[in-house]
Design a protein around this nucleic acid. Structure first.
Length: 736
DNA sequence: CGTGGGCGGATTTTT
DNA sequence: TCCGCCCACG
């Protein structure tokens, strides 16, 4: 058989991985090394060369995007529909299993899925139901606890309070929450995995069935798997199937939400004789960028080990910009983007990456002022919008009357005279009798006033009516009818002009989404399938405009993407690495991986920027440059300072007093210090080298002075706090 | 029942 | 500083 078309587009390492013998495999795939290509070609290889039936292949990813991409590429390569293959996210695949085996899973046939927000609402309800103070028992934290347990595969019965009263209460809340979910016929995201794992493990015959069906299980982004995902995979692979996992320990950035890089190593122990392949040739970035990334990540311990290289050239230097403050930083970035566009580049070639969302605002302001279109990733997604969730709540109530979250959401939307008092009665009743709000609504009439009772009955009738009226209609007409007849459309029509209009447009968009929705085979009604789809795939870019925009996002959301020009911003200790991550080594190393991820997004140009002063949460802070800056070899870095005419070389040898930054490794020797213009008219009585005292920062030595009058600034190397720029007017420095 | 002002809290995010 | 939530008022 001629297999050249499978192998031709691959480099040597990729070819080894694609054609690997049929036994447990680990492909260590560096950033930009053609990971997806290897996965899809492996599938092709299995089918066309090894004669594996597509029916026997399962491929799992983390995001819908990755799953869609994989499906698309496999269809293209194989030239046939990928339907017989199971390709999906962990959650998607587990969901499918639970739909098919709802009986074994002990779920109602029409069970629905809670998204994070729904989950938190329900938890809040549970907290209040137990008469607990929800400032002491914060729903967010309780949700965190519960999810963390589920991610570890733990049920309340597995947990011990260890004599800790807080923990004991948390466990009780977990139990009560499980009970509430059962009553409402809902499952949260973590539950999809855990429940699915449990039935594969315990339901008679089920595990065997799937183990003999899926002889090949491929897992993408393996470094992001958490405990339950790994256990799930193991139970599915069993002893006879062939696992093929692809990942990169250096790109593990989700430890904080339960991901365990150790799973890579664990995998090598749990499966005997795992063959390891390394993909190290990078097709994305220039040599300098890779050298920088390699150097940074080299400071981490316990890596499996990998070094990216490219056959292309070195490319331009990595540009470092020291800004006075966050506005200066934004101005610099926007100017560089302007230049790029002026030279004929696309706006979308530019990505502004930052550690935390709060940083985006300043960039937005400057881009707005410069009239450069931009797009901020990670806002509310389509199916998470208020009006969409309202409409979905009606639809969910139609499919499952016991869904309390949905009930409470729309029972009085639009206003129909059902107030807090009425709801309190219902809640009390449903708590006391372990019934859903819907059931309680039928049984509470004598506990309510006649008016309240009749309003409530009207709502119940409305839902029944909507259900009856939409029976047999095509999905999009069902959606449309519910939006209209529930009064939602009218409600939003009344809202203030542009806001209400936007909401109505979104509701129309929801109808279009329903029109374009193609339900899968499984025994679900189209409506149920659509509702699950809405939760599981919250609709990144539902109404995505194909506009040429500057891209802005956190480092986390940048993973997997690439851009010709990358601005890695806010490189200050405390911000990146984040204050809350530097206390332990694991945290710091994860921040470093994040930095590595950021750098490796860049194809041609990488800018690193930091601000000496940054206003955040209304307070000015002075952060030292990120320690990661010092980890980039000096020979790769070129300092940019467009605001000041540099009349002397930017590099000042270490003879300079206090050179280097606190937190940087000794002898990192980067040439980014110095070079600032000295003023002839030194403000006040301060002189270079002068010892001064600051109320907060303590004693230090004046390194640099610049500006005049109210703009005068002084750089001081404090003994304890390191080097900082201060405004002369506010610093109130005393000469020692 | 809806809104406005006061209060507290503010990494990172997918499903 | 800014956003979201809660409560008090109209």
């Amino acid at each position: 058989m001629d297999v050249s078309h499978i192998l031709a587009p691959l480099n040597d390492a990729q070819r080894q991985a694609v054609t690997a013998p049929l036994k447990p495999t680990l492909v260590l795939a560096g950033a930009g090394s053609g990971k997806t290509r290897v996965l899809t070609h492996r599938v092709e290889w299995l089918v066309q060369v090894e004669g594996v039936s597509p029916h026997g292949i399962l491929a799992v990813t983390f995001t819908n995007k990755a799953a869609a991409e994989m499906r698309h590429r496999i269809e293209q390569q194989l030239g046939l529909p990928s339907a017989p293959l199971w390709i999906g996210t962990f959650h998607g695949v587990c969901h499918r299993l639970l739909r098919m085996h709802w009986r074994e899973a002990g779920l109602p046939q029409g069970f629905q899925i809670l998204d994070g927000e729904d989950q938190q609402r329900l938890i809040k309800k549970v907290i209040r139901g137990l008469n607990l103070d929800d400032t002491r028992w914060v729903p967010r934290e309780v949700a965190w606890f519960i999810n963390a347990q589920k991610d570890e595969g733990l049920r309340p019965r597995h947990l011990k309070d260890e004599g800790d009263p807080t923990r004991r209460q948390m466990i009780k809340l977990y139990e009560a929450y499980e009970e509430a979910c059962r009553r409402n016929g809902v499952v949260d995201f973590a539950e999809l995995l855990l429940r699915s794992y449990e039935i594969l493990k315990d339901a008679p015959g089920l595990g065997d069935h799937y183990r003999s069906r899926f002889r090949h299980v491929l897992v993408d982004e393996f470094q992001d798997t958490n405990t339950i995902q790994y256990e799930w995979m193991k139970v599915l692979v069993g002893s006879a199937s062939v696992p093929y996992v692809v990942g990169d320990d250096d790109q593990s950035i989700y430890r904080w939400r339960g991901a365990r890089v150790e799973n890579l190593q664990q995998y090598r122990k749990d499966f005997r004789d795992v063959q390891l392949f390394r993909l190290e040739q990078n097709y994305r970035s220039t040599g300098n960028i890779l050298d920088a990334a390699n150097a940074i990540i080299g400071n981490n311990s316990g890596r499996i080990g990998k070094k990216l290289w490219t056959s292309e050239g070195k490319g331009s230097a990595i540009r470092l910009f020291r800004a006075y403050n966050e506005r200066d930083e934004a101005e610099f970035v926007v100017n560089k983007i302007r230049e790029w566009i002026a030279q004929g580049g696309n706006r979308r070639d530019n990505a502004i990456l930052y550690r935390s969302n709060a940083q985006s605002r300043v960039f937005e302001e400057y881009l707005l002022a410069a009239r450069i279109p931009y797009r901020v990733y990670g806002g509310l997604r389509f199916f998470e919008r208020q009006e969409i969730k309202d409409a979905l709540a009606y639809l969910r109530l139609i499919s499952n009357r016991d869904d309390d979250a949905s009930f409470e959401r729309v029972v009085n939307l639009p206003t129909r005279g059902i107030g807090a008092r009425t709801l309190e009665v219902l809640r009390a009743h449903s708590r006391a009798h372990s019934k859903s709000m819907w059931q309680s609504a039928f049984e509470c009439n004598d506990e309510l006033g006649t008016k309240a009772a009749s309003c409530l009955q009207a709502f119940l009738t409305l839902i029944e009516k909507l259900d009856a009226e939409t029976q047999g209609l095509p999905l999009h007409e069902q959606v449309d009818h519910v939006i209209q007849a529930s009064g939602l459309a009218g409600h939003y029509q009344k809202e203030k002009a542009d806001k209400g209009e936007a909401r109505l447009e979104n509701l129309e968009e929801l109808v279009s989404a329903a029109r374009g929705f193609e339900p899968e085979d499984d025994g679900m009604t189209p409506l149920m399938a659509f509702l699950s789809h809405a939760v599981l795939e919250s609709g990144e870019g539902q109404a995505e405009e194909w506009e040429d925009c500057v891209q802005m996002m956190t480092l986390h959301s940048a993973k997997g993407l690439e851009f010709p020009v990358v601005f890695l911003c806010g490189l200050e200790d405390g911000l990146f690495p984040h204050q809350r991550s530097v206390t332990d080594m694991h945290g710091l190393e994860e921040e470093r991986r994040l930095c590595y991820v950021g750098c490796t997004r860049a194809m041609r140009h990488l800018y690193l920027t930091y601000a000496e002063q940054r206003r955040m949460h209304g307070i000015d802070s002075y952060g030292a440059p990120s320690r990661f800056i010092a980890e980039v070899p000096a020979r790769l870095v070129e300092e940019v300072r467009p605001k000041v005419q540099v009349s002397r070389p930017a590099y000042v040898p270490s003879s300079r007093p206090g050179g280097g930054y606190p937190g940087s490794r000794p002898n990192a020797g980067n040439g980014y210090v110095g070079g600032r213009r000295f003023q002839d008219d030194t403000p006040g009585s301060l002189k270079l080298g002068q010892r001064v005292r600051h109320a907060k920062f303590g004693d230090g030595v004046v390194l640099n002075l610049e500006g005049q009058g109210s703009n005068a600034r002084v750089q001081v190397n404090f003994e304890r706090q390191g080097t900082k720029w201060l405004m002369m007017g506010y610093a109130n420095l005393q000469v020692v």
